[in-house]
Computed example of a mutant assay.
Amino acid sequence: MKKPFKMNNIFNQFILSFTVILLLASCGESPPSKLTIPYSEKDIQVDGVIDSEEWSQAAIIEKLIAPWENDATDKTLLKAFVSSNYFNFSFQVWDQTLVTIPFERELSVAAGDRVELFFSSDSTLAKYYCIEMDPNGNVLDYSAEHYREFNESWDFKNINVATEITDKGYSVEGRIPLAELNELGISTPFYLGVFRADFKKPQSKDISWYSWIKPQNPTPDFHIPSAFAQTKFEAPIK
């Protein structure tokens, strides 16, 4: 006697396989909702040159997304790790329309190409801290409170940044003492924003705004909670 044909089992297997395929296909397209920054005993030489050996154990964020340009992506590489005393970070930016502005004051940085790191102790952005760095190594840093209440007189005490302009774009390398971040309430876990402004030409409103996380806003804005992701520092192995 023949066994009855079990259509339900075949259908269920098909649905399961199709779901797995969709999940695998989407894995490479969506940024993680959380980031773990690894620990390394190495110290970097802050010179703007992204040496592969120095950064071999770093976490890597590949490509940033332009949410307001149909989710276009760039080739930016962010690398980050913590050592005994520092949060270390580097950017490699591909940019063929490099726009730099003569530095007169900190806000000059906001008029040209730059990369940015924002730090908040929680997801409300009740108090957060921002660093914007241009291809020439100039820094605009300030504290802020949600929504868009900026204290431009505030500065990091000990940030160290170096840059290099290349034929493909520019690189930024830097570090911040962990002790200073801890004083600001930025201890693991915290919330991190990673951004880039790409000007097409000087004094133009033709700007591409890139972010690690896709902010949930109809117009360009990085100063909102949805532009940040939870981040933690990996503890050293004892």
Results as ranks from 00 to 15, higher is better:
S84V: 11
N85A: 14
N85F: 09
N88L: 02
N88A: 05
F89K: 06
V93R: 09
D95Y: 05
T97L: 04
L98T: 04
V99N: 01
I101G: 05
P102Q: 07
E104S: 00
S108L: 08
A110P: 07
A110E: 13
A110V: 09
V115M: 06
E116Q: 13
L117E: 09
F119K: 12
S120M: 12
S120W: 03
S121V: 03
D122T: 07
K127L: 04
Y129F: 08
P135A: 05
N136R: 04
N138E: 00
N138Q: 07
V139S: 00
D141P: 06
D141T: 06
Y142G: 00
A144Y: 02
A144H: 01
Y147Q: 05
Y147S: 07
F150D: 07
E152C: 02
E152R: 11
S153A: 12
W154E: 00
W154S: 06
F156S: 02
K157C: 09
N158S: 12
N158A: 07
N160I: 14
T163L: 11
T163W: 09
I165E: 02
P177M: 10
P177L: 03
P177A: 12
A179G: 03
E180S: 10
N182T: 15
E183R: 13
G185M: 00
T188Q: 00
D198E: 12
D198I: 10
D198N: 11
K200N: 13
K200S: 12
K201T: 14
Q203G: 10
S204R: 11
D206F: 05
I207A: 12
I207H: 06
Y210S: 07
W212C: 11
I213N: 05
K214P: 08
N217Q: 11
N217L: 13
P218V: 15
P220V: 05
